[in-house]
Design a binder for these strands. Structure first.
Lengths: 339, 339
DNA sequence: AAACCGATGGCAATCGCTTGCCGTTGGTTT
DNA sequence: AAACCAACGGCAAGCGATTGCCATCGGTTT
């Protein structure tokens, strides 16, 4: 320790210190720093100079306490280890930083009550929240939206703005793709029951399959993890279907691994389509045909919609819904149906 | 909107509301809630009951302002999209939640100045920080450690407790493994120059290779991304080495993809060893032989070391260093040397 | 019985910043 | 020249907790 380690670690400067040096009132310092056009340019410059010399950093606590705004936005994801959400997180992170907000990331562990609880606890300390793939019920969501600014991703609701990834329309492409390879039956490995996208995907498959005269079956639900893929693979195989669509890539990759173990050849014996085009889908074996979408952008858009909600004046027309396009990305896990 | 939506969203209850109902002073409420043994059991129970009826949630802002503690720990990672850090994040997240802290995740984008800047800004609003793979210089680290409680992961320094992942010792195993396959020369695809682990790994390789009479070469630096793998692969190939070790799995997987494109067969033509055993290393093609370590646990340990630093009384003996074991995980990307 | 004492609860000062309200000041308008 | 007005700064009251200090009180110790 250097002799002056004490003094340098002493105490963080406050607006009062600045005010004293500048010979003005603290209110002026406060305004100069957070409402620049409210004070004379000369005064402001002087204050800014002193502030930077002192390495002044405003206390977000104090600021939040008196202003009511915290500058923090919570981002809730069901599973922080699912690469799909990484891209969302990256998107929200970027956009939030650009807007001067801090991101508070929370892993709700796929649990409704954790999600609800977190939201309640965080109501005070955040200005709003982005719910990615929320597991809440409509009612819970409505109640929550009443109390704090919210934007959901992949979870439509009338009570809050939503960013939707338009998977269903790409599901149609996927079925066409499979049909063109001569597949007659397809099985859907479902995700969590509480997942809204899961229902949506199945509906789309069911419908599109009917239209094309294909048989659509459904197995599951499975946890959206590679680990669950083994069970899904076995079940899928026993349906006799030659084509399968998985709730997400994680599950699909797990299935791929299981097939490999069992000596089932992909795409020779079965074709498989994932969903999300997450990290890893391009380098697994075989590379996964999947439904890609601008996930990171979805995160960005969600944040900008939230910003618009927080500040309706500058926010432009607050959109209630944004739909992100998707497309089928054909790689090597799909091929002609077995003889 | 229901008629009473206004009133219910009205205002969050404060200790004053509780105090009024309970007929005590706010100080008593404060104590009952955060220093239970300081007030009579009966009074406490009454206050607790009222608090829960009111759905009281303490304002972390106000608490922080007056107590000086924030209940927030910052976790800084160089790249939030690198799966290696996912496990660290998960580890810190778990341990922090268990200790009643909130995790503030920050992506420093591999940039020293972002890291430094963040640390300065966050000094006020956090109680401490975990620096994963910090890119700071020794001096910067020392200065920072003087001002705020810190724990580093994979970045040794005398100024702060450190969690080290003992990759070097597994590197020796890796070289033995390669040597036993008849490889005579190995090339190391280096990571970022500012990465401390990078230096450490290269040192270990150099040394171990010398001891075994193998030739060790080094190429790079490369950004630790799959994308950079292409360049690394090409450069590695042109060295003529038959075995390669990559700074991390991300880079290794990128190399794998490039080899695939160029028709170089792994492990027939070249063998490749990654580092970290991150998500995806088990299902890439071929599955990657890599150096595995308990990354999530490293995150946990880092947090508990930080906790010990924050509260030296209950924290037990504050360890200054924890070394996590590693081991070579042999999969399919390594095999006999050609010829 | 006098002096003491630990447990309990209240008072009031802070923490650092924001903001409504008001007073000054120097320039404009009529 | 009287009346006005916008721009600028200061005053002071909070925001919601924590905490040092003190008063009270029933029970002990000598």
């Amino acid at each position: 320790m250097t002799p002056d380690s004490q003094s340098s670690a002493d105490r963080m400067p406050t607006i009062r210190d600045i005010a004293e040096i500048a010979g003005v009132a603290t209110s002026t310092v406060s305004r100069a720093l957070s409402n620049p056009q409210r004070v004379n340019a000369r005064t402001r410059e002087k204050i800014e100079r002193i502030a930077s010399e002192l390495h002044y950093v405003p206390s977000s606590q104090a600021r939040g306490l008196s202003s009511g705004r915290t500058g923090v936005i919570a981002v809730l994801v069901p599973d922080i280890t699912n690469p799909f959400f990484f891209d969302i997180i990256r998107g929200t992170q970027h956009q939030l930083k650009a807007s001067g907000y801090t991101q508070l990331l929370v892993d709700t562990e796929e649990a409704t009550d954790v999600e609800l609880d977190t939201l309640r606890k965080l109501r005070r300390s955040t200005d709003g929240a982005v719910l990615a793939a929320s597991r809440l019920t409509d009612q819970q969501l409505a109640d929550t939206a009443l109390r704090q600014p919210l934007v959901t991703i992949n979870r439509a609701t009338a009570d809050a703005p939503t960013v939707l990834i338009d998977t269903p329309s790409a599901v149609v492409q996927a079925l066409e793709h499979l049909a063109s390879f001569g597949h007659k039956s397809v099985v859907y490995a479902a995700g969590p029951t509480s997942s809204w996208s899961n229902h949506r995907r199945w509906k789309a498959i069911e419908e599109a399959a009917a239209k094309r005269g294909m048989t659509a079956m459904r197995i599951g639900p499975y946890a959206p993890t590679a680990f669950s893929g083994a069970a899904a693979a076995d079940a899928a195989l026993s349906t006799g279907a030659t084509a399968m669509i998985a709730f997400n890539d994680l599950l699909a990759i797990g299935m791929l691994q299981r097939f490999h173990e069992r000596g089932v050849r992909v795409p020779l014996d079965v074709s498989i389509v994932g969903c999300d085009d997450m990290f890893g889908s391009d380098f697994c074996n075989p590379p996964l045909t999947t439904i890609a979408s601008p996930v990171e952008q979805a995160g960005r858009v969600a944040v900008s919609m939230l910003m618009a909600q927080l500040d309706p004046i500058h926010g432009g027309t607050p959109r209630k819904l944004a739909v992100m396009p998707t497309h089928l990305k054909i790689r090597a896990s799909t091929g002609p149906a077995r003889g």
